[in-house]
Design a binder for these strands. Structure first.
Lengths: 336, 336
DNA sequence: CTGAAAGCGCTTACAG
DNA sequence: CTGAAAGCGCTTACAG
């Protein structure tokens, strides 16, 4: 390449990367030759010489769920627009309550930075990333001393419960209590705590038996909610900690002949891809926005060496559709 | 590292990679020192010296849809189990009818091979991959001269139509006709052609107006099917080319008061993640299986230099749930 | 503005 | 079985 252009490899390197100290004519010639030869600098040699790979690790607890796929898609686009690439890690393991650990082999000299998607890091993993000197941005579950992008899970849940209270509901059930397999994740904890706090603050009723565990899939939610919905003294509204579970509950109601929203109101959180078409009331979060924000933070650390501990909290928004309505007359509190 | 272990770098390299010609004692010492020092060979230096990166590019037309996320997840796990990593490319572009092209910058000296997920390659892209000498495995949309993993889309569609015919349906509509934005993809073509062929062969009726286009989302399918379902002379069954569209049609029916399956049968293809809980009859494909098979094929090319043009066709399976039933009595053909 | 040279951290013949 | 040396293809001071 240098030989064809009649210059040194150093000049080729400078010309192609747009550095100073190259004459316009020389640069033009180098660029033309590069074009003719389909020349692209070897990223592996560049990485070895420069110490930077222009690759970021994106680490997900699993990928097949909409929330994570949407994050990854947004991150990939943001990073690639800035000339970076995504090395993807799906840490899902065979058993539900265990994920693969982040290892040095995944990161060392392979990536310049890391974005974690709702991954509660172990102390070993934090120490590893520290030792490797890698910038890291967390989405969702925060990592101490690192920038984080998230929504306010408590506020989102409060919005959901208050929406139901505003419709006159006083007897409210909950699905999505912290299950085994996500006991280490922050979101389920926060949402349940905020639910209970809001119920108490608004003087609503939620019996112990109305709080259901679930593995956060629609399928499990349908199964796990059947017993509760069959009871004559069931609540008049259900809050699902995610839209996928809300869809499961709605389906369970349909099978039992419980009309939504006439007999039962259901609200979720997320604004899942199918929520609009299914008419599900929800508290929307901008999942792609979380991804773009996280990518932006990582790029700032990478390109500007900005090691701030910034926290970005994206807003959520109540979206009222057809799965919630006024409390059934028969269930209204008696005026005394 | 070599200094601490008291051997040459060549010996370290051989010991760590498990090559011959290293004495057991030396190997043990090297391994112990490596452990102590958290030593992991720099993949960038290894790649430069060896010419192999142990990274595969996974190229998707978009990522947020369940089908693609499931494929990526399966591929990532298979490849990582074999010591390889995944560089992910989401080719979705701003406009629906256009995707980003595969470029030399994405592949050259960056990956050892490529897996395409339902990507119809342009001749430029095929030439690029040829020029770079990269093995490639296609999922879905085949690439000439390359191994491919797919289902038999025509057979799957035939199964769906025959299921309806077996229930007595003779008036059958279709949603998922090849839309602008996927005109270059094989699957929609194959499914529609097989639908029409089976309808003719089984002497069924499908008016021109019963074949609906759609962008293959539930939302669009709900919207696009409303007019047809409102007509008094509507078909008694709808075949959706994907489960996501089937869900949209089912929702559209619900809003119109058309009962499923009493008034209208609906069948999809895929066995989407929500299909079971929603009780949707479908023709299942093993999406994760496609991903694992493709990863296996690529690894064979990478590790054993096996450049066969093998084609793997995975079976599909009718899964009867609650969205299909016998043709309504009023719509049964008159016995004459 | 340009080039010669060292160096990034490995692998791979080649000697021994 | 082990080591010295060249080479992978760049970037980066250092001279000029």
């Amino acid at each position: 390449m240098a030989r064809v252009a009649g210059v040194s490899v150093a000049t080729v390197s400078r010309a192609l990367r747009g550095l100073d100290r190259v004459s316009p004519q020389t640069r033009a010639r180098v660029l033309r030759v590069a074009e003719d030869l389909h020349y692209v600098a070897s990223p592996t040699a560049t990485s070895l010489a420069s110490g930077r790979t222009r690759v970021a690790a994106v680490v997900a607890p699993f990928l097949t769920r909409w929330f994570f796929a949407t994050l990854v898609s947004a991150i990939e686009k943001s990073l690639r627009a800035a000339g970076h690439h995504v090395l993807l890690f799906d840490l899902e393991d065979d058993s539900y309550d265990h994920r693969l650990p982040l290892s040095q082999n995944m990161l060392w000299k392979r990536v310049d930075g890391v974005i974690t998607l709702n991954i509660p890091m172990t102390s070993d993993e934090i120490e590893l990333v520290d030792r490797l000197g890698l910038p890291l941005v967390a989405i969702g579950s925060p990592v101490p001393g690192r920038p984080c992008v998230r929504i306010d899970d408590r506020a989102a849940m409060r919005t959901a419960v208050e929406h139901l209270a505003g419709l006159g509901h006083t007897r409210i059930g909950y699905i999505g209590a912290v299950p085994q397999n996500v006991a280490h994740i922050q979101t389920p904890q926060d949402r349940l705590e905020a639910f209970l706090a809001t119920v108490e603050q608004q003087h609503l009723t939620c019996d112990d038996g109305w709080i259901l565990g679930s593995d956060w899939t629609a399928e499990a939610a349908a199964r796990d909610s059947t017993a509760l919905l069959s009871r004559p003294d069931r609540p008049t509204a259900i809050v699902a900690a995610s839209d996928e579970m809300a869809i499961g509950v709605r389906e369970s109601a349909r099978r039992l002949g419980v009309r939504v929203p006439e007999d039962l109101s259901i609200i979720g959180i997320d604004d899942y891809v199918l929520s609009a078409v299914l008419g599900l009331t929800t508290v929307r979060q901008d999942v792609a926005g979380l991804g773009h924000a996280a990518a932006g933070l990582l790029l700032k650390a990478l390109l500007e060496d900005d090691r701030s501990t910034e926290e970005i909290v994206l807003p959520t928004e109540l979206v009222v559709r057809e799965s919630t309505g006024r409390v059934p007359a028969a269930a209204q509190p008696q005026l005394s």
